[in-house]
Design a protein around this nucleic acid. Structure first.
Length: 959
DNA sequence: GCAAGGTC
């Protein structure tokens, strides 16, 4: 009889395969590893009688590592790690499994590999082959390919054995080697570069701190930082919208403007006035239709993690731990699966039947099985199948509640561990306190088990249920050519929502309307709101980002998130939302400033693409390894050359350490000109701790003379060229490089500029972009204050000093609302009282922010070419106001507006209607119309306040 | 001391 050694990827699969093939007629014995049993039985393969031994590994049997002489961190230059020899070996904790395989393989004729049918599984198959062939060269080796652990598939796989796929395995070999080389080189490089140079306050002992870099963890960090910067750089923008209500016997209907909202106040007012003048509403459309809300797809790992985070605020790591325990105890199926569709051969009814007796959802399960109820529906297909595991579903009934804490060994194990730990650390505590804590732990953990089990069961029952049905009514009306709509919904059948309590679908009544009907609105208001930034990334958002970009696998995503927390790169708040720490932000900022996208997902995506090419035979492993490692080594060497960028970014957030040898000071600090204020020292080029460039007197703090440079400056280098016109000289010209995306169209990225006052380009850029837009976009107040800080003669940009508080949208000051902005009043007042000569550059109007005289200038940007504005003559002050906005009395603006914006298509403009009620008053007193259509009181022009006309006819606006 | 991928 042929002896066949069968090896599965994990003990559970070995058990399932053996049970199915033997029809449960098998013997079990121990191997050398306590987890990996050996099952024995007889079975016929293609008519050949076989004695089957089925055992398992636990995932990868081998690891890839550098040879010993490269393993110490100081043993070599990290750049050498791109070429240092690596080896694959069986680590200490897997030697038991290796010995079992060797012992059994010696006695067998065939080796059949039952590893998971994905690339990693194929690679593990080759690891198993290597070990087995090492002791028995005559083995016949075959691969079993199965798509689910169900009877038909497993028997089919056993009768149709194939050859292992070398390409699949090669792809994984390449990935492992690339991950190791990139990860180890960058981790050693940035740890050794930064750890001793800065006081990194997040770490208890920063001498042992590891600043790891990994091709998965860094893009994950990148997602968190990018969202954080997006929030920091968000500029609130005020918008206006018209709302209207209609009261009838059946109740109140609220109509919203089908334009959404406009960002232009005057346009909004004109449209609003047209509505007020002819307020009769005509119903143009009444549409009624049936709407379905579908149940979710069957549950994959990522969906389980996302939903547990959303519904229970469990971290993905917690979820996977609890799911693993539920799986080990037999309550749910294998929890690491990409599959979100059930095989047609899965017996779904039997799973539902098991739950008929449940005290809470049992009656729902009964209704599902009752053909007369019509509740059953075959689950939809989510389109993913890992060919190894079914979607996560319940496999054993539990009534839950009190039984969890009694019958689950995990809880007892945890309690044991915790008791030992607490007793050893806090031996002075009374037993009573320890018991109380244990009870709490027992309760919390059983609570998690219970909630996750409930989610898996309810999700499964929802999947096999009919969608919820609603009747939706949409009513559209027309007022003076403007269209408004309102909608209502009545739930006709809740169906799956009866069991899936985590989702809701609200009823909202709308009174009956008929086409052609006319009415006078109960209210017609012009409301305003401001755009708001998107929220910080939640754990579910982060998982979605990773999933979409292909960062990590279903089984490892939670590990990458946990790694960021462990490395102090990010923190998570009570709402499961992530913010970068100073450390995380500084690292991303450093690489960003180098111009590398090492913190973006593209690198991993490219690697994944190459792996795919290897796995289908289009490229060889050697070819991909060579090109990828060559590129990464070049990138690494470049990063070493540009390490000053990392140091500068770190310096923004952290104090230099005493251990620092100080050899990395930036090349800044050269003289630009003699200081005209103190006439003693020189002005020098500096980059301050917020990352902004400035030229300050080296006599600081005695002399506080300073010239701030535009926010978009990326690089600034002093040249030998001298300005011909500025005094006192010599004033050396500076070669600037601006960040392309931050300067308006029409400006060059490269600019040879003078800080002496003659440079129109610099002046315009400061007026338009400010001196700290980069920091507004990414910075936060530093936690420490270096002793050699830059001069601060002038008020710094208020947004910089209080970046988390929403500033006024007109003057960027905090402490007052935009509606109460003093700059709007003072700017107008100044123009009137000083009788200004409106010629370019001639004015004595004091700036309303700092008191320095303003000058009248002409904009030269694409959007506003030729438009005039007043700006403060102090280069350190950002104040400016458009001339035309003063003339017509509307608000001064700091940036060009877009007249009409689609809030749905532009995420930066998502926003609420924060101040609708207060701002209704800005539309004059005409916020209500009477039943006869006459405005109640106080009609007047919204621009100049004259009651004799409306704004669209206001003489101050001209034609 | 470093990666990411399996798994108990």
């Amino acid at each position: 009889m042929i002896k066949v050694l069968n090896v599965a990827e994990k003990p559970s699969v070995a058990k399932s395969v053996a049970t199915i093939l033997s029809r449960n007629q098998l013997r079990v014995r121990d191997g050398r590893s306590r987890y990996n049993k050996i099952f024995e039985f007889n079975y016929s393969i293609n008519g050949q009688q076989c004695h089957m031994l089925v055992t398992s590994v636990t995932g990868h049997l081998m690891e890839v590592e550098f040879e010993d002489r490269f393993r110490k961190w100081h043993s070599c230059d990290p750049a050498d790690l791109y070429t240092a020899p690596v080896r694959k070996y069986v680590p200490e904790d897997k030697l038991d499994i290796k010995r079992t395989l060797e012992e059994e393989a010696r006695r067998c004729h065939w080796l059949v590999l039952w590893l998971d049918c994905d690339r990693e599984g194929e690679n593990i198959a080759f690891e198993v082959m290597e070990v087995c062939k090492g002791v028995n060269r005559n083995l016949t080796i075959r691969r079993a390919r199965f798509s689910a652990l169900i009877e038909r598939d497993i028997h089919e796989a056993a009768q149709n054995l194939i050859a292992p796929n070398q390409w699949f395995s090669d792809a994984v070999d390449a990935r492992q080697e690339i991950d190791l080389r990139i990860g180890a080189s960058f981790t050693r490089f940035q740890t050794m570069l930064l750890r001793d140079r800065f006081v990194i306050d997040s770490a208890q002992d920063d001498r042992n701190l590891v600043l790891s870099y990994g091709p998965c963890q860094f893009p994950t960090l990148g997602f968190v930082v990018e969202r954080y910067w997006e929030i920091q750089s968000h500029e609130p923008e005020e918008f206006w919208t018209i709302n209207c209500t209609h009261r009838s016997d059946e109740g109140l209907a609220s109509f919203s403007w089908m334009r959404g909202h406009l960002f232009d106040y005057t346009s909004s007012v004109i449209l609003y006035e047209m509505c007020v003048e002819e307020p009769t509403a005509t119903v143009t459309k009444v549409q009624q239709q049936e709407k379905l809300k579908y149940p979710p797809y069957p549950l994959s790992t990522i969906e389980l993690e996302k939903r547990a985070s959303r519904y229970f605020r469990m971290s993905s790591e917690q979820t996977m731990k609890v799911a693993e325990d539920l799986y080990q105890a037999g309550f749910i199926s294998y929890p690491r699966t990409e599959t979100d569709s059930f095989s047609s051969r899965t017996d779904l009814h039997t799973i539902v039947q098991e739950h008929q007796e449940h005290p809470v959802w049992g009656s729902y399960a009964q209704r599902l099985l009752d053909p007369g109820a019509g509740l059953w529906r075959n689950p939809s297909n989510g389109g993913h199948d890992d060919k190894a595991h079914p979607p996560i579903h319940p496999t054993k009934f539990s009534a839950g509640e009190s039984r969890w804490s009694q019958d689950h060994h995990v809880v007892h194990f945890l309690i044991l561990v915790s008791t030992c730990a607490w007793q050893s650390f806090f031996s002075f505590w009374s037993n009573l306190v320890i018991m109380a804590l244990n009870e709490f732990l027992k309760f919390s953990y059983s609570h998690f088990l219970q909630r996750l089990y409930e989610l898996v069961v309810r999700h499964f029952l929802a999947c096999v249920s009919q969608p919820a049905v609603g009747a939706e009514t949409v009513v559209e009306i027309d007022i003076a050519g403007e269209r408004f709509s309102a909608s209502g919904r009545v739930i006709l059948a809740k169906n799956y929502l009866d069991v899936y309590r985590f989702e809701s679908w609200g009823d909202s009544m709308i009174p009956t309307h008929v086409q052609g009907q006319q009415f006078i609105p109960a209210t017609l208001t012009l409301d305003s709101g401001v755009t708001r930034p998107p929220p910080l990334l939640s754990e579910a958002d982060l998982l979605s980002c990773m999933d979409k970009a292909g960062i990590g696998t279903d089984a490892t995503m939670h590990d990458h998130i946990k790694k960021l927390l462990d490395r102090f790169y990010v923190t998570k708040d009570a709402n499961t939302r992530f913010s970068p720490t100073n450390l995380g932000e500084a690292l991303v900022m450093g690489y960003d400033d180098m111009g590398y996208e090492l913190w973006k997902p593209n690198l991993r995506s490219l690697m994944e693409y190459d792996m795919k090419e290897v796995s289908v035979g289009n490229k060889s492993k050697a070819e991909v390894l060579a090109t990828c490692l060559q590129q990464m080594k070049a990138c690494f060497l470049d990063a070493k050359v540009n390490k000053v960028k990392l140091l500068e970014a770190m310096a923004i957030f952290f104090n230099r350490s005493d251990r620092s040898n100080g050899d990395d000071s930036s090349a800044l600090g050269e003289n630009v000109r003699p200081c005209g204020l103190c006439q003693e020292a020189n002005m020098v080029l500096k980059k301050n701790r917020d990352g902004n460039f400035m030229v300050g007197c080296s006599g600081f703090p005695q002399c506080r003379n300073a010239v701030w440079l535009p926010g978009p400056v990326l690089e600034a280098t002093i040249t030998n060229n001298i300005c011909n016109s500025c005094t006192p000289g010599p004033v050396y010209l500076i070669q600037f490089k601006f960040r392309q995306l931050e300067i308006p169209p029409g400006f060059n990225v490269n600019h040879l500029g003078c800080i002496g006052g003659c440079d129109e380009t610099l002046r315009q850029l400061i007026e338009i972009c400010g001196t700290g837009s980069r920091v507004q976009a990414r910075g936060r107040p530093p936690t420490t204050t270096p002793s050699n800080g830059p001069p601060t003669t002038t008020p710094s940009n208020p947004q910089r000093s209080n970046s988390r508080q929403a500033p006024c949208i007109y003057c960027y000051q905090t402490g007052h609302a935009s509606t109460d902005c003093p700059s709007r009043i003072s700017a107008t007042r100044h123009v009137q009282s000083h009788g200004m000569n409106q010629q370019n550059g001639e004015s004595s109007i004091p700036c309303s922010t700092c008191g320095t005289p303003c000058v009248l200038r002409t904009a030269n940007t694409a959007n506003n070419r030729g438009r005039k504005f007043y700006s403060c003559s102090s280069q350190a002050c950002n104040f400016f106001v458009w001339e035309d906005s003063l003339n017509n009395g509307s608000a001064p603006r700091s940036a060009p507006r877009q007249n009409i914006s689609s809030s749905a298509s532009n995420p930066s403009r998502r926003g609420g209607r924060g101040r609708g009620v207060q701002n209704a008053g800005r539309a004059g007193d005409v916020t209500f119309v009477s039943a006869t259509g006459e405005p109640i009181s106080g009609r007047r022009c919204f621009v100049c306040g004259d009651p004799s006309h409306f704004a669209n006819a206001c003489p101050s606006r001209g034609s």
